[in-house]
């Protein structure tokens, strides 16, 4: 079973978000592996451990930032190799263009399973995965909380409103992982040492234009002022005042 894991580099959640001339100032951003993608790495490694094969990390990123340390951590979990598509002018908010480049790379790899996180915690569109599947002409299942492999067939439980949709599918298929899918291991020291010797390829790709809709202007959401603190002698008095305000002032009850 050869598995391609889609790994996106996203700005650290602590990154300061500042708008300059209608654009997010990204100069101070530090990048990390998208947390949802870590579940995909762990799941892929578990499948490999159960039935053999190879786990390849595939990342598209800009060509001026080193991400070796971050991807070596994923290789310490058990991934066998990493391919980083380096693109001058890369942006994380172009799912269509990015899916085109990534699907091009995957089409040369003969993967039985393509797996990634359900969404990037930068732009939250959850778009790149399904787009790659469509471009490769394979099915996809998104938001999966549980994935099992039986021979060459997969059974996925996909989170839907009020429950789980249980879906069977033969490979090749593209899966995107929800947070509950699996628990990411802490690699042992020897695996961390081993990961340093695994193949790591940087591959230049050219900047491409696709159908993505450009953002014209970014802004910070209107700041919510702190509201009223409700005083009272007792819990009961506070609650009475609150309910009164919710009914007559806010009109939400």
């Amino acid at each position: 079973m050869d598995i391609v894991v889609l790994v996106k580099m996203v700005p650290d959640t602590e990154s300061r978000l500042e708008i300059v001339d209608g654009k997010v100032n990204e100069s101070g951003f530090k990048y990390m592996v998208n947390p949802y993608d870590e579940f995909a790495v762990e799941q892929a490694v578990q499948f490999k451990e159960a039935s053999g094969g190879k786990v390849t990390l595939l990342t598209l990123f800009s060509n001026d930032t080193s991400i070796d340390t971050d991807l070596r951590k994923m290789m310490a979990i058990g991934a066998d190799e990493a391919i980083v598509l380096r693109q001058d002018g890369y942006r994380g908010d172009r799912p269509s263009a990015n899916a085109k480049v990534i699907s091009g790379a995957i089409s040369e790899m003969n993967a039985d399973l393509v797996i990634g996180g359900v969404q990037g915690i930068d732009y939250y569109q959850g778009a790149t995965g399904p787009m790659i599947a469509q471009m490769l002409g394979i099915p996809h299942i998104s938001g999966v909380t549980n994935l099992e492999m039986n021979g060459d067939k997969f059974t996925a439980k996909r989170q839907i409103e009020g429950g789980l949709q249980v879906i069977d599918c033969p490979g090749p298929v593209l899966i995107t992982c929800q947070k509950d899918m699996t628990k990411v291991r802490f690699p042992a020291l020897k695996d961390i040492m081993m990961s340093k010797r695994k193949p790591f390829e940087n591959r230049e790709v050219s900047l491409n234009e696709e159908n993505d809709i450009q953002t014209n202007e970014c802004s910070l959401p209107p700041a919510r002022g702190g509201g009223v603190i409700i005083d009272g002698e007792s819990a009961e008095e506070k609650v009475d005042k609150l309910i009164e305000k919710l009914k007559t002032e806010a009109k939400v009850l």
Partner: peptide, 20 residues
């Protein structure tokens, strides 16, 4: 959960942009 799954696949099938 359906719209967020269908939208991007459909955009790729149509060769259109997608806003999620």
């Amino acid at each position: 959960t359906m719209g967020k799954d269908l939208g991007p696949r459909l955009a790729a099938e149509l060769n259109w942009g997608y806003l999620g």
